[in-house]
């Protein structure tokens, strides 16, 4: 957990910080619907022999997969974009009822400097909906705090058996090609 512990100084290494935290937390399954903000982290996970990566057709699948993983003694994490939160709600009922540990890392859209109006409804509702379904929400606004926030969230999830979402602010993600390619992503 070196990167997370010492605090990264550059703004673009936060996915590497998350990866270090996930490895230290012995996460065995990383399930995801891709988001541009998670591209680097997904790549790092795919390259790691100790992590099974499970691409999903919809985010709610991931909640069920991770519940099964926990039943079988493995820890997992769901990577998604804020719009995916809306796909998850009924599946979160199982997390709450069974008190499954649950860790999701949500890259935010429709939150800060968004240009695609279609992203706004879910982006603005994601935190509230997650809380309504019993998920502890931990927003992070600065790149250098991502690692320590995910580390703390992983403890709540796997040691204290809670459902936790880390919302990674749009401030941290994606200024690069904002107005060029991939606008709708």
């Amino acid at each position: 957990m070196t990167a997370a512990g010492t605090g990264a100084t550059r703004n673009d290494v936060w996915p590497d910080d998350i990866f270090a935290v996930l490895k230290a937390a012995e996460v065995g399954q990383v399930v995801y619907v891709p988001d541009a903000g998670h591209a680097r982290l997904i790549e790092l996970c795919q390259m790691d022999d100790g992590i099974k990566t499970v691409p999903l057709t919809t985010e709610e699948e991931g909640i069920a997969v991770l519940a099964g993983a926990w039943l079988g003694g493995e820890r997992g994490v769901l990577l998604m974009q804020s719009s995916g939160v809306g796909n998850c709600l009924n599946m979160l009922a199982m997390v709450q009822e069974c008190r499954f540990p649950f860790l999701t890392l949500v890259t935010m859209r429709g939150e800060w400097g968004e240009f695609n109006p279609w992203q706004l409804p879910m982006g603005q509702s994601a935190a509230r909906l997650l809380r309504d379904m019993g998920v502890i929400v931990q927003p992070v606004n600065e790149a250098k705090q991502v690692g320590e926030t995910v580390n703390a969230a992983a403890r709540l999830a796997f040691d204290a058996y809670r459902a936790v979402a880390v919302l990674i602010s749009q401030r941290i993600i994606g200024f690069k090609d904002w107005t060029t390619a991939g606008n709708a992503r």
């Binding site: 399954q29 499970v54 709610e60 069920a64 099964g68 993983a69 079988g72 493995e74 599946m91 009922a93």
Partner: peptide, 17 residues
């Protein structure tokens, strides 16, 4: 409950075991 999730829960379990 969690209608639609049973097979995927089975997947996570099968991968872990």
């Amino acid at each position: 409950g969690a209608m639609g999730g049973a097979t995927l829960l089975g997947l996570g379990l099968a991968l872990a075991q």
